[in-house]
Write a protein that binds this DNA or RNA. Sequence first.
RNA 1: GCGCCCGUAGCUCAGCUGGAUAGAGCGACGGACUUCGAAUCCGUAGGUCGCAGGUUCGAUUCCUGUCGGACGCACCA
Length: 589
Amino acid sequence: MKDAKTLWKACVSRALEALAREKGIPAEALSALPPAVEVPPKPELGDLGFPMFPYAKVLRAAPAQIAQAVAAALVGDPEAAGLGTVRTEGPYLNVFLDRPAVVRDVLEALGRDPDGYGRNESLAGRKIMVEFSSPNTNKPLHLGHLRNDALGESVSRILAANGAEVFKIDLINDRGVHICKSMLAYMAYGNGRTPESEGVKSDHFVGDYYVRFNDLKKEDPAAEEKAQALLVKWEAGDPDTLALWKTMNGWAEGGIRQTYERTGISFDKYYHESRIYVTGKDEVLRGLESGVFFKAEDGSVRVDLSDIGLETKVLLRKDGTSIYMTQDIGLAIERHKDWPFDQLIYVVASEQQYHFKVLFHILAKLGYPWAANLYHLSYGLVNLPEGRMKTREGTVVDADTLLDSLRELAVEEIASKGREDAVGDISETAEKIALGAVHFYLLQATPSKDMIFNPKESLSFNGATGPYIQYMGARISSMLRKHDSGEGNARGGTVRPELLAGDAEWALIRRIAEYPEAVAQAARDFDPSAVATCLYDLASAFSRFYHDNPVLTAPDKDTAASRLALAAAARTVLRNGLSLVCIPFLETM
RNA sequence: GCGCCCGUAGCUCAGCUGGAUAGAGCGACGGACUUCGAAUCCGUAGGUCGCAGGUUCGAUUCCUGUCGGACGCACCA
């Protein structure tokens, strides 16, 4: 389709130039106006459309007249004649592609390299590091993390599908007052209990104590100060404090990693804040020497940000300790040494835009050439219909709990359809459906925008959902299984593209043909929704197609074989695409 | 106050670099299973694209202003 698009563009361009020459107008006048290709609003208007408005002034003619003249020229163009037919629609020049030819090309491309369909090499040789998730170790993952994780993992896979070499990293925030609060509450109420003794997932166990810190505050007004004091003890290396910290962090991180495994995300390297929080200090001191930073009257080291319209920013406290920004400066430099990336993408919520703006600017000021290739993939908050999730009010949607309830619903769904025997491992299948539901829900939206998560609605598996797409994949798989076991009429038939030229088939073929472009666009915009939307449209087109076109039961062998080939092609694209948006493909459900 | 993002059908969201009567899903209403699994399909109703200007042959899309909302503007992460 892409090829047809560019070919037609060239044909139209030639015809326009010829028209200009005829009128004695220099062809150069058109060079600033390359033909714009678009998709007509209705399929019966054609497959490609070229608006002729822009040429009215230069060619001194009405757009509709130009369209007619160009159409006439194209009829006589032998190259264009082989690509389809043209028709004018007022000021538009519309193209009807040669359907069998496109069908043949698409099926051939898929047959040649099924797994590679949709991949490209545009980012070949490029090393891209992606940081995402970056959890705190005082509580389990919640819905917001799921959006972050899904985005990070999906973008990583999409970039890899465009040829990039991707390195995924996770920064575990295992240090700070937040973890000290959990520790303090545990010291007060723990009594030696463990996740094992209580039968609670270990990160939830730690999170429960973080919540209980609120109780502690009521009992002990000095609780906040005690948490600060505990942090000081931690930094001083107090053995008892370190031991408890280690134990509780182990629980928290262990539980969090279980959730990663469950949701299918992974990392090439974990960084721990506790081990690197002092880095960056040397870098800042060096910047002070070279005059990039300055020492304020109170003794703190600061950076002047007036060149980007901001105030000054402290980088080292007057006591010489480092802050968040200092760490991130050091960390970026260290990471580039660890794995010399061409680009580093930080998947972090939009709340931190200021932070990254400043960080990138500082690194540029320090003279790191790669600073220009740092990118903050900023995503919006996930809110509830009632508003923002609040830990204090207990409205936070916990990731594990959400997945559990979705899985439970999927189990019920399987039972209500009497498919327990057909799906094999019910629990495993239900878990994959739950994942499909969550990931599609989170990735179909534009990353930068805040989104509302309606628990009730999101529990539906109907309509534009992950399970809908999975279902179409399962239905096609079912057909292919039947065919393999000898059922149906496709055996011995020949695949003939001209038998797939109907409107329903054509709509499906177009979606299949568009998929590679969606993968490319998703990489350009760091936006998986391009892929998610394409897959939904594809599944939907397949659903319409097979609803009124019998595949295996088509009376004629060749028709059955041809339709089956189309279905198999659709399945391949679904399989490839779903993996890019972290949705498990299901053979049966 | 300043910065940044967002305001499209009752709800949740699409709408690619400005282009042909603004699209989906959910919800509502009405249809389709002795036919490859109905987690499906088809139809109906529903929008002055927050508002006002501007640029353009043409603006949901670009610019300005304005109203409304979210998030930032720490020697917290």
